[in-house]
Design a protein around this nucleic acid. Structure first.
Length: 342
DNA sequence: AAAAATGATTCTTG
DNA sequence: CAAGAATCATTTTT
């Protein structure tokens, strides 16, 4: 009962001390003549250790270890620690996997930057290139592709070497701290849990650095992607014959230059381009024609003549076969066009 | 080197 | 969702 009341008073209700601990401390108290004085001295010496030379410190440390007070102080520290451990326990919550980090990791994995070495990378690059290229050219795709892959490999290599560097530094530092703690555990009590916590803290710090690395790597990959997979950056003009076919269709359907899906497919096949390229072309053509009809007059005449000649060759007619300067005689411009003057 | 042309993308609209 | 419009980034022309 005596023990219990003392414990309540001394530990402010924190509990957690075993009877053994209390007994230990009790005996310590009896042993000491003037506890305050001696403990103060020892603490002073401990604090002064950092100011001393290594040999000196070593010697002093040894002396302290052999000090008759050492076990007593040790047990006092044990007691204090019992108290603090409790307060620490409340603060320590396991970190939930940060969704941001997960996202970065996933992206890097998908991009083939992290994960298995060469295999993943080239697979991802190939998939990306395939998705971008569609399936038409085949000739110049290879060069861009390999270029992209090379850049990606470069990024991957930098990423991995940096990551390794961090990992190494982390484990080195962890080792160092562990050694320090082990050394210190001779003079003060250190539970495995404490060490564990220390290591966790270190790892968290380093992983935050790693996140920065991941972030910047992601950024680099995104830039690379937009640089190489954005088709408009490596635009090739259609060949002469293709534009000829397209223009022919456009000017011969000038009153309604909206090819149906089937017509688009047909044109795409004839021009060796994709259907969406045909759509793009007509979209651009319509808007640009309408924007400045005058500029396209010559072209319009040219193709009008062309089709007229074709028609004439079929039905050898010469109703009004002369001056090609007749601007699109029967072609009313599609829909209702508001010509923006500029 | 500047200007024009051109294929592609993005955003708004109906 | 497709067409229009504005814009981008490159290629071609001047």
């Amino acid at each position: 009962m005596d023990d219990q009341t003392r414990m309540l008073a001394g530990l402010a209700g924190l509990g957690g001390l075993s009877q053994g601990d209390v007994g230990d401390q009790d005996s310590v108290r009896k042993q000491l003549g003037q506890p305050q004085q001696d403990i103060g001295d020892i603490l002073q010496q401990i604090m002064a250790i950092t100011d001393e030379s290594l040999d000196e410190a070593q010697a002093r440390k040894h002396a302290l270890n052999c000090h008759r007070m050492k076990p007593a102080l040790f047990s006092v520290l044990c007691e204090i620690k019992e108290k603090t451990v409790l307060s620490i326990r409340g603060v320590q919550d396991e970190d939930p996997p940060d969704p941001q980090i997960m996202r970065l990791d996933n992206m890097l994995l998908a991009e083939g930057v992290s994960g298995p070495e060469k295999g993943g990378g080239s697979a991802a690059a190939a998939a990306a290139a395939a998705a971008a290229a569609g399936g038409s050219p085949g000739s110049d795709g290879g060069i861009e592709h390999s270029d992209y892959r090379a850049k990606l490999a470069q990024i991957r290599q930098i990423y991995h070497s940096e990551l390794e560097k961090y990992e190494q530094a982390c484990s080195e530092f962890t080792n160092h701290v562990m050694n320090l703690l082990r050394e210190q555990s001779r003079t003060r009590p250190i539970s495995p849990k404490e060490i564990e916590r220390m290591v966790a803290i270190i790892h968290r710090k380093f992983s935050s650095i790693q996140m920065q690395l991941k972030q910047s790597t992601c950024e680099a990959v995104m830039i690379l992607r937009s640089r190489f997979l954005d088709a408009r950056r490596k635009r090739r003009n259609f060949n002469k014959q293709a534009t000829e076919v397209l223009n022919e269709y456009f000017y011969s359907h000038l009153s309604n230059p909206y090819p149906s899906e089937e017509a688009k497919e047909e044109l795409a096949k004839k021009c060796a381009i994709t259907v969406s390229q045909v759509s793009n072309w007509f979209g651009n053509k319509r808007i640009r024609y309408k924007k400045n009809i005058g500029k396209f007059q010559e072209e319009a005449n040219l193709y009008a003549v062309k089709t007229a000649v074709d028609a004439a060759s079929v039905s050898a007619q010469a109703s009004q076969a002369n001056s090609p300067a007749t601007p699109n005689s029967g072609t009313h411009i599609f829909g209702s066009i508001k010509i923006t003057s500029n």
